[in-house]
Amino acid sequence: MNTRKKLPLALLYADEEQQIDGRTRFQKLIFLMQMEGNLNDLTPTETYRFEPYDYGPFSSTLYDDLDNHIERGLIEDSKETLDEEDDIVQYKYHLKPEGREFIEENESGAEFERVVEEAKRIVQEYGDVPLPELIDMVYSKYPDYAENSVLR
């Protein structure tokens, strides 16, 4: 499995609750891992390519990889309806026991441990930040990714 595909697993593995609430939060945390993590030696094929979108940096490939991990039984996703009238839902992503087992059996190398350490740092720094504040932080630090925002 290439490094890029390991990033979502590392993020969930690093989070003590092993859950990320919301697609937008997942996107921002992976983006911050790549931008602020000590991962600059990864090649472009080992990272996600983000582009400015409705809520800042967005990578469709990240969704593809999440779907692949869900199909393989490593990650579970669930939907919670936040507002039935406006049809607003929030996705929640959990690392399944099979995902934890997969990581512990297959990803014991120094490179993956470094990725997990960076993920832990990002989760500690940004994991509990309310989503509107997280988006604002990303916009202020990386204004090029705010150019297509529906919030600006």
Rank of each mutant, 00 (worst) to 15 (best):
M1Q: 12
T3F: 07
T3W: 00
K5P: 01
K5M: 08
K5E: 01
L7F: 07
A10F: 06
L11T: 06
L12V: 08
L12S: 04
Y13A: 09
Y13G: 02
A14F: 12
A14T: 07
E16T: 13
E16S: 07
E17K: 14
E17R: 15
Q19L: 09
I20N: 13
D21T: 10
G22H: 12
G22W: 13
T24H: 09
T24K: 14
R25L: 03
F26E: 02
Q27V: 04
Q27R: 02
L29I: 08
L29S: 07
L29A: 06
F31W: 11
F31H: 13
L32E: 09
L32M: 11
M33T: 04
Q34A: 06
M35S: 03
M35D: 04
E36T: 07
E36H: 08
G37V: 06
G37D: 10
G37L: 05
G37R: 07
N38C: 05
N38A: 10
L39P: 07
D41A: 09
D41T: 15
D41L: 13
D41S: 14
L42S: 00
L42F: 10
L42W: 02
T45S: 12
T45Y: 04
T45K: 09
E46P: 11
R49P: 00
F50G: 00
F50P: 00
E51I: 10
Y53T: 03
D54M: 09
G56C: 08
P57V: 04
F58Y: 12
S59H: 02
S60N: 14
T61F: 00
T61W: 00
L62A: 03
Y63G: 04
D64I: 10
D65M: 07
D65W: 09
D65N: 05
D65K: 07
L66G: 04
D67L: 06
D67S: 12
H69Y: 02
H69T: 00
H69V: 00
I70N: 09
I70A: 07
I70K: 14
E71G: 04
G73F: 10
L74H: 13
I75T: 09
E76G: 08
D77K: 15
S78G: 14
S78H: 07
K79T: 05
L82T: 11
D83N: 15
E84T: 10
E85F: 14
I88M: 11
I88F: 13
V89E: 15
K92P: 01
K92N: 10
Y93A: 09
Y93I: 08
Y93L: 12
H94E: 13
L95T: 10
K96P: 00
K96I: 06
K96D: 09
K96C: 00
P97Q: 11
P97V: 13
E101Y: 04
F102Q: 00
I103F: 12
I103L: 10
I103K: 04
N106T: 12
N106W: 02
G109W: 03
A110L: 08
A110C: 03
E111N: 07
E111D: 09
F112T: 14
E113F: 10
R114K: 05
E118R: 02
K120Y: 06
E125F: 04
Y126E: 05
G127T: 04
D128F: 03
V129M: 15
P132H: 01
P132F: 06
L134K: 02
L134W: 08
V138A: 07
S140P: 02
S140A: 12
K141D: 13
Y142G: 00
Y142I: 00
Y142D: 02
P143A: 03
